[in-house]
Design a protein around this nucleic acid. Structure first.
Lengths: 236, 236
DNA sequence: GATAAAATATGATTTAAATCAATGTTTTGT
DNA sequence: ACAAAACATTGATTTAAATCATATTTTATC
């Protein structure tokens, strides 16, 4: 983690538009900015760790982050993906609990670190923000429950297809509109879909044979999105 | 559903102490009570249905409720259990979304039905309540994520053991301190653990052979809780 | 209290996916 | 540029749990 002069601007001048903090007033953004730290995490670096005490709110300015939890004999399960504008750690801050998962940078990622006190202050004074947080949690809970059912009931092929859809949903495509804009290892895709590396490789190969995707190293090109959705057996 | 004169009291006189609404001031409880409906649901009756528009908050006065979602080819997955004092449907109300799951009475259950408007009003005026809701959601999300990892990584025996622990945690024991205070069918236990009825039956039989539980019809007696925890492979 | 319906139980078989094993291919750091 | 490490691939084998099939017991209903 590099804690140096980055070119991350103050919250009032942040270019991100999609995050939950983006709707705050200038005054509130100013409050948040006050004393915030800006840090750059390299690919693979851990931002915070499951079980550790929570003192900060993390707001992604640029980059990609995975949130994972450890399961049986250390097997990792990716529970959420986050991108620019998304905030991390707020659950633990508001509930006074240790971090629920481990956040790891998936590529060079710029993050603003806001103290618990500042965040709580802003939250207390803004019912709208609380409501947005509730809605965010609600959304996360919904997708966690969906994910749960998927893992419990779907086949690996369906789950891998859905994992790819989640990646597209979270990070979109490159300029060519077909290459998924994130490079995961096969093992990470496995951690997302809740299966093993070998099975993931075989299943991706199968999806490739079915002409649904095209594999170019770590890049995955989606050549038939409609069929991918069908294969994932998703209806909503 | 019987919508008749029940003996459910006004919120100000509600005897429950564990729920999120119990900490409200008398004035707020009075507001909630205003215009609330009291209903009795018989065992098996549906309180609200997944996908339907959400107009009400449900507060359990007495009884037991399961929340489930439908998965592939109609297989049910129980995502949460609720008891006296617990509220249902608040997520959908606050996010303006359809109900995320289906709530079904597991036994004769008395429920207070509060309108969206009344609930929102009380919520808006009370930061403490918002915070409590956030913490509740946070807790639910945490357990959903844990459940997800369990289903993805644990064996059926571990999951069934954990399901029993969840039942104990949610509903406790009968007076004898060993009989789990809820009667589920084997198929419902399967829906909770994410497996099939046959496998559940076999696994329960095995736990019985291991002298961890004792089966008496639908009643399940826990004779060795420590070993049950061990078998569930849970560490928190 | 008879009869249907639902729930429980048990055995046999199949199957999807994990595991084990070995090898080839990229990345990464020095 | 090179070695070491990390990652990807493919094949063979095992296994946990689902599925299928059928019988028995319990529970509800007329």
């Amino acid at each position: 983690m590099k804690n140096s002069n980055t070119d991350i601007p103050s919250c009032t001048k942040c270019g991100n538009t999609s995050g939950i903090l983006c709707n705050l007033s200038m005054k509130e953004k100013d409050e948040l900015s006050c004393g915030k730290q800006e840090n750059v995490f390299k690919k693979g670096e851990v931002i915070f760790k499951e079980g550790h005490n929570a003192y900060n709110l993390f707001c992604i300015h640029k980059g990609k982050v995975k949130l994972s939890k450890l399961g049986k004999d250390g097997k990792e399960q990716i529970v959420r993906l986050a991108k620019a504008g998304d905030i991390l750690g707020y659950r633990s801050l508001l509930s006074n609990e240790p971090y629920h998962g481990t956040a790891t940078a998936m590529e060079e990622t710029e993050i603003c670190i806001i103290t618990k006190e500042v965040f709580q202050k802003v939250n207390e004074d803004n019912y709208k923000l609380s409501l947005n947080l509730i809605q965010l949690l609600s959304k996360d809970l919904k997708s966690a429950e969906q994910h749960l059912i998927d893992v419990a009931q779907k086949t690996v092929k369906e789950r891998i297809s859905e994992a790819l859809m989640l990646l597209i949903d979270s990070f979109g495509y490159l300029e060519d509109k077909r290459t998924i804009n994130v490079a995961l290892t096969r093992s990470e895709i496995a951690d997302l879909a809740g299966t093993t590396t070998e099975t993931t490789i075989r299943t991706l190969a199968q999806l490739s044979t079915d002409n649904i995707i095209k594999l170019e190293g770590k890049n995955i090109l989606v050549t038939n999105y409609k069929e991918l959705v069908k294969t994932s057996n998703t209806y909503d």
